[in-house]
Design a protein around this nucleic acid. Structure first.
Ligand SMILES: NC(=O)c1ccc[n+]([C@@H]2O[C@H](COP(=O)([O-])OP(=O)(O)OC[C@H]3O[C@@H](n4cnc5c(N)ncnc54)[C@H](O)[C@@H]3O)[C@@H](O)[C@H]2O)c1
Ligand SMILES: NC(=O)c1ccc[n+]([C@@H]2O[C@H](COP(=O)([O-])OP(=O)(O)OC[C@H]3O[C@@H](n4cnc5c(N)ncnc54)[C@H](O)[C@@H]3O)[C@@H](O)[C@H]2O)c1
Lengths: 215, 215
DNA sequence: CACTCCTCGTTACTTTTTTCACAAGAATGA
DNA sequence: TCATTCTTGTGAAAAAAGTAACGAGGAGTG
């Protein structure tokens, strides 16, 4: 049922996790079938956009009936690569790092904090928030032996570049960068920036200029 | 020097905070003038895109010379509305809320956690991470008397909708929503979703499918 | 002052993304 | 069986965004 996957637009891919969340809500409610209208409403997009998004990856519905929730969810998981639990390396067990380590629902998204790395001797060797801390020198070994592909970077800004380069050398595939530092890494490493300050500025513009347009 | 501001594309607005960050780096280094090339390099975009983005808001450079760093930074701040410190209400002083309250650099972005709201009797009335906690019933008063326009929503998912509605009623202008719950609020409230799980899924796709295309 | 060099701002063009509308397909009920 | 009623998937048109190229206009130089 999966297409050869020509080249899905980037925005389409970014919406898949949102559809996934909506599908899980429907599944929890016991719905077996849903329509593009209902699902789109839940996801906050138009029905036609939803249908087109899905159509990039295959044909999942039956005309007149809609989409089988369970099957569609499985398909989306398969597309996103969240059909199995992925191990994640937490780099920097500080305030933000601990909050994330404590954050159970991440597992529902298909991810598990497998280990943490920190420079602080007070943390190395201990298990904090259920996650064992290792020294940065162990990074490469952890990544290799654990088959870890994803990292969350939550170190102080000054240590960000160095830590990121260590991750890249260790062979990590993707980094969620919470530091306000623009990382310059080889193209082979996917970097996603998460900067609360930037997001606040974005809404600040919407509030002051836009008057009331939604994001 | 500011244009009548026709209608800047959404992506343009989203890049302004990135330019802002780059300009601050240049300012720290003591640069008085910069070029579109240099600034674009720092921001990770093309020079032509940077020039076009700025052109939506006015003319800030002089041909042959480049842009005066200080002036351009002031202009960007003025556009974003970050030319003065904005007060922010923290809703939910849990793990994530405390990490954010501790996060000093937010102030450099133009925001200050002015107060917090939490249901827990153990927290109400206390000052946690330098922020005073109030009961949710005080929300409207805090917003009104403090002139607060922005809120960070970091309550458990089950409490998200109720808390968000309370904020909307209190007259908050924008909400940064850290909960994995899709809020349905009046258009007058700007909502920006911040969901680590969704971001991880996005990079998961890039890693598994894209093979190595950058975000 | 004339000449050259450099960099911005803008326009024309290309690519990407969204929207719209409709034909084809499947279930339901008479 | 056949018509009716949904709802999908898709192709074409429209809108949005990104790219590249160029002309205008200062700054520096001799
Ligand atoms: N706290 C927030 O809410 C928040 C919000 C947005 C961004 N950030 C960013 O996230 C990062 C972390 O914030 P925080 O509040 O958790 O800081 P923090 O100081 O509490 O934690 C940083 C941790 O990283 C460790 N560390 C330092 N150098 C390291 C290295 N080279 N390798 C591994 N570990 C190292 C430290 O020992 C410490 O445990 C900062 O860059 C901050 O700007 C934080
Ligand atoms: N911890 C993370 O890293 C992380 C990451 C992504 C998203 N989130 C989301 O952020 C939210 C908070 O996460 P957390 O780990 O800080 O949870 P938490 O349980 O540690 O904190 C929640 C806080 O909200 C308070 N609260 C509950 N109901 C409230 C109400 N109606 N009004 C005001 N305050 C109320 C609680 O007393 C508690 O202090 C959750 O929705 C979670 O899914 C957390």
């Amino acid at each position: 049922m999966r297409k050869a996957c020509e080249n899905p637009p980037k925005p389409t891919v970014e919406r898949l996790p949102i559809y996934r969340r909506a599908l899980e809500i429907l599944l929890d409610e016991g719905c077996e079938y849903t329509s593009s209208c209902e699902l789109a409403e839940l996801a906050g997009v138009t029905a036609s956009r939803l249908r087109k998004d899905l159509s990039f990856f295959g044909r999942f519905g039956t005309a007149g009936m809609g989409y089988p929730v369970r099957e569609l969810l499985d398909a989306v998981n398969s597309i996103l690569g969240t059909d199995r639990l992925r191990d994640v390396l937490l780099v920097g067990m500080g305030n933000l790092g601990r909050a994330i380590a404590n954050h159970a629902p991440l597992r529902k998204c298909g991810f598990r904090i497998a280990a943490a790395v920190d420079v602080s001797p007070a943390k190395v060797g201990r298990v904090i928030c259920g996650v064992r801390c290792y020294p940065p020198s162990e990074t490469a070994r952890l990544v290799r032996e654990g088959g870890i592909e994803f990292a969350l970077l939550t170190v102080p800004p000054g240590a960000a570049r160095e830590a990121a380069e260590r991750l890249a050398e260790a062979g990590i595939k993707a980094i969620l960068n919470f530091t306000p530092v623009h990382l310059r890494l080889p193209r082979s490493v996917v970097v996603e920036e998460v900067d609360f300050g930037i997001l606040l500025q974005k809404v600040a513009f919407a509030v002051t200029q836009g008057g009331g347009e939604n994001a």
